[in-house]
Amino acid sequence: MVSSFVHKPEKFRLEYVAHDGSEGDIVLMDIDVIHDLAILKIDPLQKQFFSFNLDDLSKGEQIYSMGNPMDLSMLIIEGNYNGLIQQSRYKKILFSGSLNPGMSGGPAFDDQGRIIGVNVAKSGEQLSFLVPVSGLDLLYKRVIESGAAKDFNQIINTDLIKDQQAFYDQILEREWESEELGDVLVSGKLDESLKCWGHTIDEKDSYYIGVHKHCRSEDSIYISNKMFTGGFSYDYEWITTERLNRFQFYTVVEDRYSHAGANRVSDKEDATNYNCEESFVEISDHSWKVSTCMRAYKKYEGLYDVLLMLTTVDLNNKTLLAKAAMSGVSKENSVRFIKRFLGEIQWKN
């Protein structure tokens, strides 16, 4: 709701309805698009309010989540604090209670009534996520210091740039472990927040074998219902054949040769069309066809979605097909990443 107002302030208005039926206007003070938070001010300010608990909680502690699910009524749900999620780019609390749609944005508090988090999303049966209150506290302090924000697009732009800078710095400043895949050495898991898995395609009817490795970030940043960003993934496929001749083998490679997807952007007001270029590049003494596609965000300067895909084209019966997709990345970071990604591909000899 708040995002609709941020993107089209001329079309939307923010209003509240209190528990006693009174209504009033809302002023949007500040937003944090990364953690999906916003600070709203109502007039007159209420006399009773929650306070924050900024201390650490212990696992298993009883916590309560409050919200207005499906506009039915105010509800309080009990559950447990299960610590922070490991595989996540952003701090999220795992709550073993069942949030329902409509409760997002509602508070979660400890048994003393102090806020420890904000409802975000439901992950499964009796499993939900909360944004830790520390993020809310930071945002609130910013409002106290700087007052109401004027240019929300600028804030989003700055936050997104800062966030991707931190993410890519973290990845690029560490050692990348190598893993074997067929005749090649490729990169393993590049960040704790990524989920990686592998599998082999080897059906008995198939004349070729594909060994796959995938890594992707489970997080994405919601900008509006037509635009998400912050995605990151990379994949490798090692394809070999013993039965197919070279024409047939390359038909297989062609079939598999399609770019991974970036986060969804479905409005032409939000991003340009993709610009793609193909070339043949020499990497690790082999000949590769490399395809690079990128599109620019129209409202957030300096941010792009970048797609990379490459495959060897000088062998008749085996190939490595590698892909990477980065959503909401700066030009410098994408080039840095691609350079490193290509450099880490080594043919074993």
Partner: peptide, 9 residues
Amino acid sequence: PEYSKVIKP
């Protein structure tokens, strides 16, 4: 994205 998907021997 629109790109060339052709791979040949």
